[in-house]
């Protein structure tokens, strides 16, 4: 399977990763190679096989509804690129 510019732009948007115009061809070529690898799955007969999301047949364990976390925002925000008055800053969100 061979990807074109449109697909690369679509994938770039899904992944939120900018792809420069000059990179499109190489990205398309390498992704296409990987999709060729995926194509090997087509021939396999998977009729009646349940999808397997997880290696273990376990069920979800539950946590007691008790507050265990304390305010750590100063420590946690020490690694943040931009904060003000306890808030994380981003370019204006338009709503």
């Amino acid at each position: 399977m061979s990807l074109g510019k449109t697909e690369v732009e679509y994938i770039s948007r899904l992944a939120a990763i900018a792809v420069q115009d000059g990179e499109v061809d190489e990205v398309a070529a390498k992704l296409s190679n990987i999709l060729d690898l995926f194509a090997q799955m087509e021939a396999a007969d998977t009729q009646g096989v349940e999808p397997m999301a997880h290696p273990l047949d376990q069920v979800q364990r539950l946590r007691r509804d008790v507050i265990s976390e304390t305010d750590q925002h100063e420590k946690l925000q020490s690694v943040a690129p931009a904060t003000s008055e306890g808030l994380y800053l981003v370019p204006q969100v338009i709503e």
């Binding site: 697909e7 679509y10 994938i11 770039s12 899904l14 992944a15 990763i17 990205v27 992704l31 990987i34 999709l35 995926f38 799955m41 087509e42 396999a44 998977t46 096989v49 349940e50 999808p51 397997m52 999301a53």
Partner: peptide
Amino acid sequence: MVGAYALSAGFYDAYYLKAQKL
């Protein structure tokens, strides 16, 4: 990117679900 593509509309069954069956 390839992971996002495998989950995207129209490819989920052919890629992601198929891979889970395998």
